[in-house]
């Protein structure tokens, strides 16, 4: 077959992209960068948005493996925790700057993802899900007992002067907002690229029918490991961010199963296998979580989980594809109506 000519037009990673979408994306990002100017003296709203961005990034990272490749993990807290511990231990024991520690966290989490993926990807469907849960729980138990990482007490980061060089901001938390937002923008652009690239096509093929992908000449294991490395690496940096934000890490806050569940729930609720899904899921679920935590005081944690549960049941019954699928079907109906 001779090399065909390629249609010229606006493309990204070889696939057509609408100028309108690019303009909307960057306009939205621009507005988000301006928002802190209006949040002076509003620490709750600032924290809420920072946490929404962080969890949206975590949701995007889960979505790479769970949404695009169809490999449902409920053990992703392990990569978040490994990232948090890597940069913290590197700083406490070797004086490594947290920014460099963040890159180390990406490498360690990605490597852990590959090493865990090699045996776990031999399993399919429910068995893979159970394997991720078991591995994550094992890591949780090991870190809870291991004195080098502070065991159950965890590790505390010493307070350093506020500043970008120390990745610590005490009175004015706005830089955390910018860092979280930048993480979200970078990761979202990366996911848009990945979705349209060869990797994205193969991952979606694996999600639909792994054996059919293999029959065409692709190694599903290789691509699942790539997805795992991307997914785990991104979560590793999220762990570093969290450690620098809270300055205290312990197994229940960075390695616990509930983190894995929430990280999976965000894209599932927003729209699994879509770019916007994790962002929408994070906005809705984290807003509910944070407001219920504040308004229901000590019992807030349980209330937000109750609301999560109710929402998930409603969506599972009436809109299993999440908010994005609901938007798509509404759009289709609107278009039909317009015709």
């Amino acid at each position: 077959m001779s090399a065909p000519s390629v249609n010229k037009g606006l493309t990204f990673a070889g696939s057509p992209i609408k100028l309108r979408n690019i303009v909307l994306f960057f306009a939205g990002v621009g507005i988000l960068y301006l928002i802190p100017q209006f949040l002076d003296g509003k620490p709750f709203e600032l924290r809420l948005l920072t946490v929404i961005f962080l969890y949206a990034v975590m949701g995007q990272s889960w979505n790479i493996l769970g949404g695009y490749a169809g490999q449902i993990s409920i053990g992703h807290a392990m990569f978040f925790g490994l990232g948090a511990y890597t940069s913290t231990i590197a700083f406490l024991n070797f004086g490594v700057n947290p920014w460099i520690g963040g890159l180390l966290a990406v490498a360690v989490s990605a490597l852990a993802g590959v090493l865990i993926g090699i045996p776990c990807f031999r399993l399919r469907s429910h068995y893979f899900v159970i394997a991720t849960l078991v591995v994550a729980e094992s890591i949780f138990l090991i870190f809870s007992e291991w004195s080098f990482v502070g065991a159950a007490i965890g590790l505390e980061l010493p307070i350093r002067p506020s500043g970008w060089e120390n990745f610590q901001f005490h009175r004015n938390k706005i830089p955390y907002y910018y860092i979280a937002l930048t993480m979200l923008v970078v990761v979202t652009i990366f996911v848009i690229w990945m979705e349209r690239s060869k990797i994205g096509f193969v991952l979606k093929g694996i999600r639909d029918d792994e054996d059919a992908v293999r029959s065409l000449g692709f190694s599903p294991l290789r691509y699942k490991l790539i997805a795992m490395a991307f997914s785990a690496g991104i979560l590793g940096f999220c762990g570093t961010f969290y450690a620098q934000y809270v300055l205290l890490i312990e197994p229940p806050t960075v390695l616990f199963a509930s983190i894995s569940v929430i990280v999976a729930l965000i894209p599932i609720f927003g729209g699994i296998g879509t770019v916007a899904g994790p962002i929408i899921g994070s906005v809705i679920l984290l807003t509910i979580s944070e407001y219920s935590r504040v308004h229901f005081s000590g019992s807030g944690r349980n209330v937000d989980l109750l609301i999560y549960g109710a929402l998930i049941m409603v969506f599972a019954a009436y809109c299993p594809g999440g908010v994005m699928s609901m938007i798509s079907s509404l759009r289709a109906r609107f278009r039909k109506g317009a015709v």
């Binding site: 065909p4 249609n7 493309t11 070889g14 060869k198």
Partner: peptide, 8 residues
């Protein structure tokens, strides 16, 4: 190259 693959 996805563009070339698509044309093929």
């Amino acid at each position: 190259d996805v563009a070339i693959a698509r044309e093929r």
